[in-house]
Amino acid sequence: MAETTFIPFEKVKTVRDTPLEEMYTSGHRTCQGCESAMVMRHFSKAAGPRTIATGSTGCMYVANTSYMTTPWIIPWMHTQLGAGGSSAVGTSAALRALMRKGKIAEEKINVIAFCGDLGGGDMGLSGISAALQTDYDLLIILYDNESAANTDIQATGMTTYGAQTTFTPPGTKHRIMQHRWKKNVAPMLAVGHPTCRYVATASATYPPLDFHNKVRKALSIGGPTFIHTFDPCPKGWDYHPQYSREIGELGIKSGIFPLYEIIDGTVSYSYDARKRARTPVREYLVKQGRFAHIIDEDIDYIQSMVDSMWNEWEIPGVAPFKGGLEPAKN
């Protein structure tokens, strides 16, 4: 069996050792209970003050830039909707050139680009792909609230099957308008970019510190890296904001959003939904108004897809191949 590469990084071992200082601070206009804001808060905490962030258009741009004010303490720059990857490459290239020419001191400056599920997983995929083939040190975080949330909740390639969005309202003839199964972005990037050393999925709050340490690992291993986060969105998913953490935890425990790291090609589970009894997806779905219209039949379908992900896929929860591996017969 392949050994997982050892990454020397400063691990935060207990919640009490989490850095106290905020690099993304109070005074933003995200919704009550916004989990994407938690991604911002914790990636910047983990990366620390010597970090430059760029952010694609979306909630985490618009809600964090009210007129002439900012909650960012680290330098942050807005970039276009599909430009997460190219902004990361440009920033890293500029830093490298400035250091080579002696215009700024040689030091490690983290470059992190974040983008939403529409901006990164749909529109900006080619730019991220290009970034993952460079030799720059950069981290791309795709924060996935499962919709184009900023423009009032339109379906994207990452919206859960069956969910109501502005683009997919349930009607009297057609109950389900979001027919697409969630795009499997992180594995697509890992499979497609064999030299990319670190790809992971995460949730900002569950398990505690998991995301925080993944950011630290990604920044320590070097080269281009990628993390896909799972962000419950009280506005678009329609649940009371106090339950953000619970909804995230249920998403992971039900196995609908698999948690893992792929380090130098080796997969390791951060929450092993193969081994632990998976919470029925029903418990996750019925707590959200975006699924208020679905019926048992739909829940059974979603459950069967999740079960197939974990029971039938060659690499459970990650790669949707189902064995075979024989020479072609025709």
């Binding site: 905020e22 601070t25 109070s26 005074g27 933003h28 206009r29 009550q32 004010t69 909650p71 303490i73």
Partner: peptide
């Protein structure tokens, strides 16, 4: 902790 002094958002609650 320093905070964004020009936009507090307490009236949201």
């Amino acid at each position: 902790q320093s905070r964004n002094a020009s936009f507090k958002r307490g009236t949201t609650k």
